[in-house]
Write a protein that binds this DNA or RNA. Sequence first.
DNA 1: TCGTGTTAGTTTCATATGTAACAGATATCG
DNA 2: CGATATCTGTTACATATGAAACTAACACGA
Lengths: 157, 157
Amino acid sequence: MPDLLPSDTADALTLDRFLPYRLAVLANTVSKGIARLYADRFGITIPEWRVLAILGAFGPATASEIQGRSAMDKVQVSRAIARMLEAGLIDRTVDPDDRRRQTIAMTAEGERVYSEIVPLAQAREAALLDGFSVEERVVLDRLLDRLQARAEAGEKP
Amino acid sequence: MPDLLPSDTADALTLDRFLPYRLAVLANTVSKGIARLYADRFGITIPEWRVLAILGAFGPATASEIQGRSAMDKVQVSRAIARMLEAGLIDRTVDPDDRRRQTIAMTAEGERVYSEIVPLAQAREAALLDGFSVEERVVLDRLLDRLQARAEAGEKP
DNA sequence: TCGTGTTAGTTTCATATGTAACAGATATCG
DNA sequence: CGATATCTGTTACATATGAAACTAACACGA
């Protein structure tokens, strides 16, 4: 019998078929694999990579914009920024109109690291999806979006 | 193509469509939702819930068996066991044939907590899949298994 | 039975993380 | 104006985590 179907045995729960557990294990396996791509080579962490990815995709941004686009909380963003400033991957300039805000931009070094990581990350994503047909990728894409929406909907009540 | 902005480069990567990132965010959203089910009410953590789930599904087991069935490392299992012993949810008996091994079993209290959590967890899983047809559940099930296999395959090389 | 190697499980230590408190800047409303 | 609220970002503290060192028990060959 396939899993994820309404169970006939009412109270049995097999951990390795339990969707939240499977998602946690899968995400963890994938994250570790990706992190190894840049942890050793560039000495950056997952939050730092995410900041780079946001800046690479959208250009300079404030910390709160990065936060909004990355599902990281502001403490994670603040700490990632601190480390990246230290490492010379980004610089920041205070917004003259609102001196609370600081616009973050990649340095030339940050751009260089970014442009090296992106192909590695994309190759890893492609490897994950190796053997998936176009149709399967579309289905996966939609199912993940729906799961995310359901997960967020279940948060508030 | 002019290279005015990083986002103009051909190989741009949009974080919120990047599969590893999406999996991480989804798993995190789901895990937090589930954890709230038992964190407040029963005072147990995710590793402890996993130990309970293993014991509930397979019966008494040693720490290393729990480890093998749960994708947790032995440190996590050891710490979960220590807390659960303290809380009276499990007890352990030294294996007379091999005194390094300790068989872990739920206490009556552990069984009670387990039997209360299982329906909550299953309801949460059902809520996640609400609106998914049987066919969609089957497809999701298979895609997740294949992704997990691909993710593990990408670990070694 | 001694020595070496292996296994089960625990502890240590350095780092990562989340919550909450915080400081500084701006916004609002009387 | 001026008091208060709100926003941006940082810091402090307590807890969680993972890697590696460690202890105790067993295995097995010389």
